[in-house]
Design a protein around this nucleic acid. Structure first.
Lengths: 238, 238
DNA sequence: GCGTTTCTGTACGAATTCGGACAGACAAAC
DNA sequence: GTTTGTCTGTCCGAATTCGTACAGAAACGC
Protein backbone atom coordinates (compact mmCIF):
# COMPACT_ATOMS: atom_id res chain seq x y z
CA UNK A 1 0.00 0.00 0.00
CA UNK A 2 1.30 3.38 -0.91
CA UNK A 3 2.70 5.31 1.98
CA UNK A 4 1.08 8.48 0.75
CA UNK A 5 -2.33 7.11 1.61
CA UNK A 6 -1.20 5.64 4.87
CA UNK A 7 0.17 8.90 6.14
CA UNK A 8 -2.29 11.59 5.27
CA UNK A 9 -0.92 12.62 1.92
CA UNK A 10 2.67 13.07 2.99
CA UNK A 11 5.00 12.31 0.13
CA UNK A 12 7.78 14.62 1.21
CA UNK A 13 10.98 12.67 1.57
CA UNK A 14 12.19 14.45 4.66
CA UNK A 15 9.00 13.87 6.61
CA UNK A 16 8.76 10.28 5.50
CA UNK A 17 12.31 9.59 6.53
CA UNK A 18 11.65 10.81 10.05
CA UNK A 19 11.11 8.39 12.90
CA UNK A 20 7.40 8.15 13.85
CA UNK A 21 7.78 10.18 17.00
CA UNK A 22 9.44 13.10 15.25
CA UNK A 23 6.77 13.01 12.58
CA UNK A 24 4.03 13.00 15.18
CA UNK A 25 5.57 16.03 16.82
CA UNK A 26 5.49 17.98 13.59
CA UNK A 27 2.16 16.76 12.24
CA UNK A 28 -0.10 19.10 14.25
CA UNK A 29 1.82 22.09 12.95
CA UNK A 30 1.73 21.18 9.28
CA UNK A 31 -0.52 23.13 7.02
CA UNK A 32 -1.15 22.18 3.39
CA UNK A 33 -0.33 24.82 0.81
CA UNK A 34 -0.42 24.87 -2.94
CA UNK A 35 2.67 25.64 -4.99
CA UNK A 36 1.77 27.62 -8.09
CA UNK A 37 4.17 27.85 -11.01
CA UNK A 38 6.13 31.10 -11.23
CA UNK A 39 5.01 32.24 -7.83
CA UNK A 40 7.59 33.32 -5.27
CA UNK A 41 7.75 31.70 -1.87
CA UNK A 42 10.39 34.05 -0.52
CA UNK A 43 12.28 37.04 -1.77
CA UNK A 44 15.69 38.04 -0.45
CA UNK A 45 15.40 40.13 2.68
CA UNK A 46 11.95 38.88 3.49
CA UNK A 47 11.33 37.27 6.85
CA UNK A 48 11.42 33.52 6.50
CA UNK A 49 8.75 32.63 9.01
CA UNK A 50 7.89 29.20 7.59
CA UNK A 51 9.60 26.18 6.19
CA UNK A 52 8.01 24.23 3.35
CA UNK A 53 8.09 20.46 3.00
CA UNK A 54 7.54 19.90 -0.70
CA UNK A 55 5.18 17.04 -1.54
CA UNK A 56 5.04 17.56 -5.25
CA UNK A 57 6.57 20.10 -7.60
CA UNK A 58 9.90 21.85 -7.84
CA UNK A 59 11.19 25.00 -6.18
CA UNK A 60 14.23 26.86 -7.47
CA UNK A 61 16.59 28.71 -5.18
CA UNK A 62 17.81 31.72 -7.07
CA UNK A 63 20.66 34.07 -6.31
CA UNK A 64 20.26 37.56 -7.70
CA UNK A 65 23.23 39.83 -8.25
CA UNK A 66 23.32 43.59 -7.84
CA UNK A 67 22.99 44.17 -11.57
CA UNK A 68 19.89 41.99 -11.70
CA UNK A 69 21.46 39.00 -13.36
CA UNK A 70 20.47 35.80 -11.65
CA UNK A 71 21.17 32.12 -11.54
CA UNK A 72 19.77 29.10 -9.78
CA UNK A 73 22.00 27.75 -7.04
CA UNK A 74 19.77 24.92 -5.91
CA UNK A 75 16.51 23.15 -6.60
CA UNK A 76 14.24 21.47 -4.15
CA UNK A 77 11.83 18.75 -5.15
CA UNK A 78 9.63 16.29 -3.32
CA UNK A 79 12.55 15.16 -1.22
CA UNK A 80 13.44 18.50 0.26
CA UNK A 81 12.72 21.40 2.54
CA UNK A 82 12.54 25.01 1.42
CA UNK A 83 14.29 27.58 3.53
CA UNK A 84 17.40 26.19 5.02
CA UNK A 85 18.39 29.48 6.64
CA UNK A 86 15.47 29.37 8.99
CA UNK A 87 16.61 25.94 10.16
CA UNK A 88 19.70 27.69 11.44
CA UNK A 89 17.68 30.29 13.23
CA UNK A 90 18.15 33.11 10.79
CA UNK A 91 15.11 35.22 10.16
CA UNK A 92 15.99 36.62 6.80
CA UNK A 93 15.83 34.82 3.48
CA UNK A 94 18.97 35.20 1.39
CA UNK A 95 17.74 33.58 -1.77
CA UNK A 96 14.69 33.89 -3.91
CA UNK A 97 12.56 30.75 -3.86
CA UNK A 98 10.57 30.38 -7.02
CA UNK A 99 8.11 27.63 -7.91
CA UNK A 100 9.20 26.06 -11.20
CA UNK A 101 6.76 23.20 -11.37
CA UNK A 102 3.41 23.43 -9.66
CA UNK A 103 2.60 21.10 -6.80
CA UNK A 104 1.85 21.23 -3.15
CA UNK A 105 3.68 21.40 0.14
CA UNK A 106 3.19 21.34 3.88
CA UNK A 107 4.33 24.41 5.69
CA UNK A 108 5.04 25.06 9.32
CA UNK A 109 6.53 27.80 11.43
CA UNK A 110 10.31 27.80 11.40
CA UNK A 111 10.38 28.64 15.07
CA UNK A 112 8.32 25.58 15.98
CA UNK A 113 10.52 23.30 13.94
CA UNK A 114 13.57 24.79 15.61
CA UNK A 115 12.13 24.23 19.07
CA UNK A 116 11.11 20.67 18.32
CA UNK A 117 14.52 19.98 16.84
CA UNK A 118 16.14 21.23 20.04
CA UNK A 119 13.83 19.13 22.20
CA UNK A 120 13.93 15.88 20.31
CA UNK A 121 17.39 14.67 19.39
CA UNK A 122 16.53 12.44 16.41
CA UNK A 123 14.74 15.33 14.75
CA UNK A 124 17.65 17.65 15.44
CA UNK A 125 19.94 15.09 13.91
CA UNK A 126 17.82 14.94 10.80
CA UNK A 127 17.66 18.72 10.48
CA UNK A 128 21.41 18.98 10.74
CA UNK A 129 21.78 16.15 8.26
CA UNK A 130 19.55 17.98 5.84
CA UNK A 131 21.49 21.19 6.29
CA UNK A 132 24.56 19.20 5.43
CA UNK A 133 23.24 17.84 2.14
CA UNK A 134 21.90 21.27 1.27
CA UNK A 135 25.45 22.51 1.63
CA UNK A 136 26.58 19.59 -0.48
CA UNK A 137 24.17 20.62 -3.17
CA UNK A 138 25.51 24.17 -3.11
CA UNK A 139 29.13 23.09 -3.44
CA UNK A 140 28.21 20.71 -6.24
CA UNK A 141 26.41 23.51 -8.06
CA UNK A 142 29.28 25.94 -7.53
CA UNK A 143 31.69 23.50 -9.13
CA UNK A 144 29.19 22.49 -11.82
CA UNK A 145 28.67 26.10 -12.85
CA UNK A 146 32.36 26.42 -13.50
CA UNK A 147 33.31 23.07 -14.97
CA UNK A 148 30.40 21.63 -16.90
CA UNK A 149 29.00 22.45 -20.31
CA UNK A 150 25.60 23.90 -20.99
CA UNK A 151 24.40 20.64 -22.54
CA UNK A 152 25.38 18.69 -19.46
CA UNK A 153 23.74 21.16 -17.14
CA UNK A 154 20.59 21.14 -19.21
CA UNK A 155 20.36 17.36 -18.82
CA UNK A 156 20.97 17.64 -15.10
CA UNK A 157 18.21 20.19 -14.73
CA UNK A 158 15.73 18.21 -16.81
CA UNK A 159 16.37 15.12 -14.71
CA UNK A 160 15.73 16.98 -11.48
CA UNK A 161 12.57 18.45 -12.95
CA UNK A 162 11.46 15.06 -14.20
CA UNK A 163 11.81 13.63 -10.70
CA UNK A 164 9.49 16.24 -9.29
CA UNK A 165 7.02 16.66 -12.12
CA UNK A 166 5.00 13.54 -11.44
CA UNK A 167 5.00 12.62 -15.10
CA UNK A 168 7.05 12.69 -18.28
CA UNK A 169 5.64 15.96 -19.47
CA UNK A 170 5.89 19.33 -17.79
CA UNK A 171 5.85 23.02 -18.58
CA UNK A 172 9.15 24.72 -19.20
CA UNK A 173 10.19 27.46 -21.58
CA UNK A 174 13.65 27.96 -22.94
CA UNK A 175 13.55 31.43 -21.52
CA UNK A 176 13.06 30.16 -17.99
CA UNK A 177 15.62 27.43 -18.25
CA UNK A 178 18.13 29.96 -19.56
CA UNK A 179 17.44 32.18 -16.56
CA UNK A 180 17.99 29.30 -14.17
CA UNK A 181 21.16 28.13 -15.84
CA UNK A 182 22.49 31.67 -16.08
CA UNK A 183 22.97 31.64 -19.85
CA UNK A 184 21.44 33.32 -22.88
CA UNK A 185 18.17 31.98 -24.18
CA UNK A 186 19.46 30.95 -27.62
CA UNK A 187 22.03 28.80 -25.87
CA UNK A 188 19.26 26.76 -24.31
CA UNK A 189 17.42 26.55 -27.62
CA UNK A 190 20.49 25.02 -29.20
CA UNK A 191 21.05 22.63 -26.33
CA UNK A 192 17.39 21.62 -26.41
CA UNK A 193 17.71 20.93 -30.11
CA UNK A 194 20.69 18.66 -29.47
CA UNK A 195 18.68 16.70 -26.93
CA UNK A 196 15.65 16.50 -29.17
CA UNK A 197 17.73 15.39 -32.17
CA UNK A 198 19.24 12.72 -29.96
CA UNK A 199 15.76 11.52 -29.08
CA UNK A 200 16.01 12.25 -25.37
CA UNK A 201 13.23 14.82 -25.12
CA UNK A 202 10.41 16.28 -27.17
CA UNK A 203 9.79 20.00 -27.10
CA UNK A 204 6.60 21.76 -28.03
CA UNK A 205 5.62 25.27 -27.17
CA UNK A 206 6.58 25.62 -23.57
CA UNK A 207 6.24 22.02 -22.59
CA UNK A 208 8.87 19.33 -22.62
CA UNK A 209 8.41 15.56 -22.62
CA UNK A 210 11.11 13.26 -21.34
CA UNK A 211 11.36 10.44 -23.87
CA UNK A 212 14.54 8.61 -22.98
CA UNK A 213 15.47 9.16 -19.40
CA UNK A 214 18.38 6.74 -19.43
CA UNK A 215 20.00 8.68 -22.25
CA UNK A 216 19.49 11.92 -20.35
CA UNK A 217 21.22 10.41 -17.35
CA UNK A 218 24.11 9.32 -19.50
CA UNK A 219 24.49 12.82 -20.92
CA UNK A 220 24.12 14.70 -17.67
CA UNK A 221 27.07 15.68 -15.57
CA UNK A 222 27.84 13.73 -12.44
CA UNK A 223 26.21 16.41 -10.33
CA UNK A 224 22.72 15.01 -10.69
CA UNK A 225 23.77 11.60 -9.42
CA UNK A 226 26.00 13.02 -6.72
CA UNK A 227 23.15 14.99 -5.20
CA UNK A 228 20.71 12.10 -5.47
CA UNK A 229 23.23 9.90 -3.72
CA UNK A 230 23.56 12.33 -0.83
CA UNK A 231 19.82 12.40 -0.40
CA UNK A 232 19.30 8.64 -0.40
CA UNK A 233 22.26 8.45 1.93
CA UNK A 234 20.51 10.63 4.46
CA UNK A 235 17.05 9.21 4.09
CA UNK A 236 18.00 5.59 3.81
CA UNK A 237 16.96 3.37 0.93
CA UNK A 238 13.21 3.20 1.03
CA UNK B 1 46.70 47.92 22.92
CA UNK B 2 46.36 45.25 20.32
CA UNK B 3 43.85 42.60 21.19
CA UNK B 4 46.17 39.89 19.99
CA UNK B 5 48.47 40.54 22.91
CA UNK B 6 45.66 40.91 25.36
CA UNK B 7 44.15 37.60 24.52
CA UNK B 8 46.96 35.14 24.15
CA UNK B 9 47.62 35.48 20.44
CA UNK B 10 44.06 35.04 19.25
CA UNK B 11 43.49 36.99 16.07
CA UNK B 12 40.78 34.76 14.67
CA UNK B 13 37.67 36.76 13.99
CA UNK B 14 35.23 34.14 15.18
CA UNK B 15 36.89 33.69 18.54
CA UNK B 16 37.30 37.41 19.03
CA UNK B 17 33.67 38.04 18.26
CA UNK B 18 32.55 35.62 20.95
CA UNK B 19 31.31 36.84 24.29
CA UNK B 20 33.95 36.36 27.00
CA UNK B 21 32.20 33.40 28.59
CA UNK B 22 31.98 31.47 25.34
CA UNK B 23 35.62 32.19 24.66
CA UNK B 24 36.62 31.05 28.12
CA UNK B 25 34.75 27.81 27.57
CA UNK B 26 36.69 27.10 24.40
CA UNK B 27 40.10 28.35 25.49
CA UNK B 28 41.23 25.27 27.40
CA UNK B 29 40.56 23.11 24.36
CA UNK B 30 42.43 25.21 21.83
CA UNK B 31 45.71 23.95 20.54
CA UNK B 32 48.02 26.04 18.35
CA UNK B 33 48.92 24.56 15.00
CA UNK B 34 50.94 25.79 12.08
CA UNK B 35 49.42 26.10 8.62
CA UNK B 36 51.99 25.24 5.99
CA UNK B 37 51.47 26.30 2.40
CA UNK B 38 50.22 23.55 0.08
CA UNK B 39 49.54 21.18 2.91
CA UNK B 40 46.15 19.53 3.20
CA UNK B 41 44.10 19.87 6.34
CA UNK B 42 41.40 17.50 5.22
CA UNK B 43 40.73 15.32 2.22
CA UNK B 44 37.25 14.29 1.17
CA UNK B 45 36.06 11.21 3.04
CA UNK B 46 38.47 11.75 5.88
CA UNK B 47 37.13 12.02 9.41
CA UNK B 48 36.87 15.66 10.40
CA UNK B 49 37.76 15.34 14.04
CA UNK B 50 38.87 18.93 14.58
CA UNK B 51 37.84 22.41 13.63
CA UNK B 52 40.45 25.06 12.90
CA UNK B 53 40.18 28.71 13.88
CA UNK B 54 42.50 30.46 11.47
CA UNK B 55 44.66 33.17 13.03
CA UNK B 56 46.75 33.96 10.00
CA UNK B 57 46.90 32.57 6.48
CA UNK B 58 44.37 31.35 3.97
CA UNK B 59 42.73 27.96 3.52
CA UNK B 60 40.99 26.98 0.28
CA UNK B 61 37.98 24.70 0.22
CA UNK B 62 38.21 22.67 -2.93
CA UNK B 63 35.63 20.50 -4.62
CA UNK B 64 37.04 17.69 -6.72
CA UNK B 65 35.01 16.07 -9.48
CA UNK B 66 35.11 12.44 -10.53
CA UNK B 67 37.35 13.18 -13.48
CA UNK B 68 39.85 14.90 -11.22
CA UNK B 69 39.05 18.44 -12.26
CA UNK B 70 38.72 20.72 -9.32
CA UNK B 71 37.69 24.19 -8.30
CA UNK B 72 37.68 26.25 -5.15
CA UNK B 73 34.22 26.79 -3.68
CA UNK B 74 35.27 28.80 -0.66
CA UNK B 75 38.22 30.36 1.08
CA UNK B 76 38.74 30.86 4.77
CA UNK B 77 41.03 33.50 6.17
CA UNK B 78 41.69 34.93 9.59
CA UNK B 79 38.03 35.56 10.13
CA UNK B 80 36.83 32.01 9.64
CA UNK B 81 36.58 28.45 10.81
CA UNK B 82 37.67 25.45 8.77
CA UNK B 83 35.35 22.49 8.65
CA UNK B 84 31.82 23.59 8.70
CA UNK B 85 30.47 20.06 8.32
CA UNK B 86 31.71 19.06 11.71
CA UNK B 87 29.80 21.97 13.22
CA UNK B 88 26.68 20.22 12.02
CA UNK B 89 27.76 16.96 13.57
CA UNK B 90 28.90 15.25 10.44
CA UNK B 91 31.99 13.14 10.76
CA UNK B 92 33.13 13.09 7.20
CA UNK B 93 34.77 15.93 5.29
CA UNK B 94 33.21 16.62 1.88
CA UNK B 95 35.74 19.10 0.62
CA UNK B 96 39.46 19.25 0.40
CA UNK B 97 40.94 21.94 2.63
CA UNK B 98 44.22 23.18 1.32
CA UNK B 99 46.51 25.80 2.84
CA UNK B 100 47.11 28.51 0.25
CA UNK B 101 48.98 31.00 2.36
CA UNK B 102 50.99 29.86 5.36
CA UNK B 103 49.98 30.96 8.79
CA UNK B 104 48.73 29.48 12.02
CA UNK B 105 45.51 28.38 13.60
CA UNK B 106 44.00 27.09 16.80
CA UNK B 107 42.40 23.70 16.56
CA UNK B 108 39.98 21.93 18.85
CA UNK B 109 37.90 18.78 18.78
CA UNK B 110 34.70 19.17 16.80
CA UNK B 111 32.84 17.10 19.36
CA UNK B 112 33.82 19.44 22.18
CA UNK B 113 32.77 22.50 20.24
CA UNK B 114 29.46 20.83 19.48
CA UNK B 115 28.85 20.02 23.13
CA UNK B 116 29.74 23.50 24.30
CA UNK B 117 27.53 25.01 21.62
CA UNK B 118 24.63 22.89 22.85
CA UNK B 119 25.28 23.84 26.48
CA UNK B 120 25.84 27.55 26.06
CA UNK B 121 23.25 29.36 23.97
CA UNK B 122 25.30 32.39 22.83
CA UNK B 123 27.96 30.07 21.48
CA UNK B 124 25.36 27.97 19.70
CA UNK B 125 23.93 31.12 18.20
CA UNK B 126 27.32 32.11 16.91
CA UNK B 127 28.01 28.70 15.44
CA UNK B 128 24.70 28.73 13.61
CA UNK B 129 25.39 32.27 12.44
CA UNK B 130 28.72 31.17 11.08
CA UNK B 131 27.15 28.22 9.31
CA UNK B 132 24.80 30.68 7.75
CA UNK B 133 27.46 32.96 6.32
CA UNK B 134 29.39 29.94 5.14
CA UNK B 135 26.31 29.00 3.16
CA UNK B 136 26.13 32.57 1.94
CA UNK B 137 29.68 32.29 0.70
CA UNK B 138 28.86 29.10 -1.19
CA UNK B 139 25.84 30.60 -2.92
CA UNK B 140 27.82 33.69 -3.82
CA UNK B 141 30.56 31.54 -5.29
CA UNK B 142 28.10 29.37 -7.19
CA UNK B 143 26.62 32.46 -8.85
CA UNK B 144 30.04 34.07 -9.32
CA UNK B 145 31.37 31.03 -11.11
CA UNK B 146 28.60 31.32 -13.64
CA UNK B 147 28.21 35.05 -14.10
CA UNK B 148 31.54 36.77 -13.62
CA UNK B 149 34.57 37.07 -15.84
CA UNK B 150 37.94 35.60 -15.14
CA UNK B 151 39.44 39.05 -14.60
CA UNK B 152 36.83 39.90 -12.00
CA UNK B 153 37.26 36.62 -10.20
CA UNK B 154 41.02 37.04 -10.20
CA UNK B 155 40.64 40.38 -8.46
CA UNK B 156 38.23 38.90 -5.96
CA UNK B 157 40.65 36.11 -5.13
CA UNK B 158 43.62 38.44 -4.79
CA UNK B 159 41.70 40.65 -2.40
CA UNK B 160 40.76 37.73 -0.19
CA UNK B 161 44.36 36.57 -0.23
CA UNK B 162 45.61 40.05 0.55
CA UNK B 163 43.36 40.19 3.61
CA UNK B 164 44.88 37.04 5.00
CA UNK B 165 48.47 37.37 3.91
CA UNK B 166 49.54 39.83 6.57
CA UNK B 167 51.34 41.97 4.02
CA UNK B 168 51.21 43.22 0.45
CA UNK B 169 53.37 40.44 -0.89
CA UNK B 170 52.61 36.74 -0.88
CA UNK B 171 53.43 33.57 -2.75
CA UNK B 172 51.10 32.53 -5.54
CA UNK B 173 51.73 30.94 -8.91
CA UNK B 174 49.52 31.29 -11.94
CA UNK B 175 49.23 27.54 -11.95
CA UNK B 176 47.71 27.46 -8.50
CA UNK B 177 45.39 30.34 -9.07
CA UNK B 178 44.17 28.69 -12.26
CA UNK B 179 43.44 25.52 -10.33
CA UNK B 180 41.45 27.42 -7.74
CA UNK B 181 39.48 29.42 -10.27
CA UNK B 182 38.85 26.34 -12.38
CA UNK B 183 40.37 27.71 -15.57
CA UNK B 184 43.39 27.04 -17.75
CA UNK B 185 46.70 28.41 -16.60
CA UNK B 186 47.28 30.69 -19.62
CA UNK B 187 43.98 32.35 -18.83
CA UNK B 188 45.34 33.43 -15.47
CA UNK B 189 48.60 34.58 -17.05
CA UNK B 190 46.66 36.89 -19.33
CA UNK B 191 44.45 38.17 -16.54
CA UNK B 192 47.51 38.76 -14.36
CA UNK B 193 49.07 40.72 -17.18
CA UNK B 194 46.01 42.93 -17.43
CA UNK B 195 46.18 43.67 -13.72
CA UNK B 196 49.89 44.32 -13.84
CA UNK B 197 49.57 46.62 -16.86
CA UNK B 198 46.87 48.50 -14.99
CA UNK B 199 49.27 48.95 -12.08
CA UNK B 200 47.22 47.00 -9.56
CA UNK B 201 49.71 44.23 -8.84
CA UNK B 202 53.30 43.28 -9.48
CA UNK B 203 54.15 39.73 -10.41
CA UNK B 204 57.52 38.10 -10.12
CA UNK B 205 58.23 34.43 -10.18
CA UNK B 206 55.63 32.94 -7.94
CA UNK B 207 55.05 35.94 -5.75
CA UNK B 208 52.58 38.72 -6.19
CA UNK B 209 52.59 42.18 -4.66
CA UNK B 210 49.42 44.16 -4.23
CA UNK B 211 50.22 47.68 -5.37
CA UNK B 212 46.87 49.42 -5.67
CA UNK B 213 44.28 47.74 -3.51
CA UNK B 214 41.59 50.32 -4.19
CA UNK B 215 41.85 49.65 -7.93
CA UNK B 216 41.62 45.92 -7.30
CA UNK B 217 38.46 46.45 -5.31
CA UNK B 218 36.99 48.51 -8.11
CA UNK B 219 37.76 45.79 -10.63
CA UNK B 220 36.59 42.86 -8.55
CA UNK B 221 33.08 41.51 -8.78
CA UNK B 222 30.62 42.33 -6.05
CA UNK B 223 31.19 38.92 -4.50
CA UNK B 224 34.20 40.01 -2.49
CA UNK B 225 32.32 42.85 -0.85
CA UNK B 226 29.18 40.80 -0.36
CA UNK B 227 31.03 38.15 1.60
CA UNK B 228 32.95 40.70 3.65
CA UNK B 229 29.68 42.39 4.50
CA UNK B 230 28.15 39.16 5.75
CA UNK B 231 31.14 38.58 7.98
CA UNK B 232 31.20 42.02 9.55
CA UNK B 233 27.46 41.69 9.93
CA UNK B 234 27.87 38.61 12.06
CA UNK B 235 30.88 39.71 14.03
CA UNK B 236 29.83 43.27 14.58
CA UNK B 237 31.97 46.24 13.66
CA UNK B 238 35.07 46.03 15.80
C1' DG C 1 79.35 27.45 -12.47
C1' DC C 2 76.14 24.43 -14.32
C1' DG C 3 72.21 21.74 -14.79
C1' DT C 4 67.53 21.12 -13.25
C1' DT C 5 63.25 22.55 -11.92
C1' DT C 6 59.73 25.79 -11.68
C1' DC C 7 57.24 29.47 -13.40
C1' DT C 8 55.87 32.87 -16.83
C1' DG C 9 54.80 34.75 -21.51
C1' DT C 10 52.87 33.94 -25.51
C1' DA C 11 50.96 31.91 -29.61
C1' DC C 12 47.11 29.78 -32.11
C1' DG C 13 43.19 27.22 -33.74
C1' DA C 14 38.97 25.40 -31.86
C1' DA C 15 35.02 25.56 -29.19
C1' DT C 16 31.77 27.83 -26.48
C1' DT C 17 29.01 31.35 -25.14
C1' DC C 18 27.57 36.19 -25.51
C1' DG C 19 24.42 39.71 -26.93
C1' DG C 20 21.26 41.19 -29.91
C1' DA C 21 18.06 40.65 -33.60
C1' DC C 22 14.27 38.90 -36.31
C1' DA C 23 11.01 35.80 -38.50
C1' DG C 24 7.79 32.27 -37.93
C1' DA C 25 4.71 29.24 -35.34
C1' DC C 26 1.46 28.27 -32.02
C1' DA C 27 -2.12 29.25 -28.54
C1' DA C 28 -5.25 31.92 -26.15
C1' DA C 29 -8.29 35.83 -26.00
C1' DC C 30 -11.50 38.76 -28.01
C1' DG D 1 -11.74 34.65 -37.46
C1' DT D 2 -8.62 37.85 -36.16
C1' DT D 3 -5.59 39.80 -33.07
C1' DT D 4 -2.29 39.56 -29.61
C1' DG D 5 1.12 37.63 -26.93
C1' DT D 6 4.26 34.00 -26.10
C1' DC D 7 7.64 30.85 -27.46
C1' DT D 8 10.92 28.73 -30.63
C1' DG D 9 14.40 28.55 -34.34
C1' DT D 10 18.01 30.64 -36.30
C1' DC D 11 21.52 33.86 -37.62
C1' DC D 12 25.68 36.61 -36.94
C1' DG D 13 29.71 39.07 -35.26
C1' DA D 14 32.23 39.56 -31.03
C1' DA D 15 34.25 38.06 -26.92
C1' DT D 16 35.86 34.66 -23.95
C1' DT D 17 37.88 30.62 -22.71
C1' DC D 18 39.77 26.09 -24.02
C1' DG D 19 43.49 23.03 -24.90
C1' DT D 20 47.93 22.54 -26.21
C1' DA D 21 52.49 23.72 -27.17
C1' DC D 22 56.89 25.81 -26.72
C1' DA D 23 60.44 29.17 -25.53
C1' DG D 24 62.55 32.06 -22.18
C1' DA D 25 63.54 33.53 -17.50
C1' DA D 26 64.27 33.05 -12.68
C1' DA D 27 65.38 30.28 -8.64
C1' DC D 28 67.47 26.33 -6.69
C1' DG D 29 70.55 22.45 -5.85
C1' DC D 30 74.85 20.37 -6.53
Amino acid sequence: MDQRYVDGGITNGFLRALDPESRDRLRPHLEPVELVRRRLIYSPGEDATHVYFVNRGLVSLVKTMQDGRLVEVGAIGAEGVVCLSSLLGLAEAVLESLVQISGDALKMKSSVLREEAARHAPLGEMVRGYAHIAIGQLTQTAACNRLHSLDQRCCRWLLAAHDSAGGDEFQLTHEFLALMLGVQRPGVSIAARHLQDAGMIRYQKGRVTVVDRAALEASACECYGAIRAQITDLYGTD
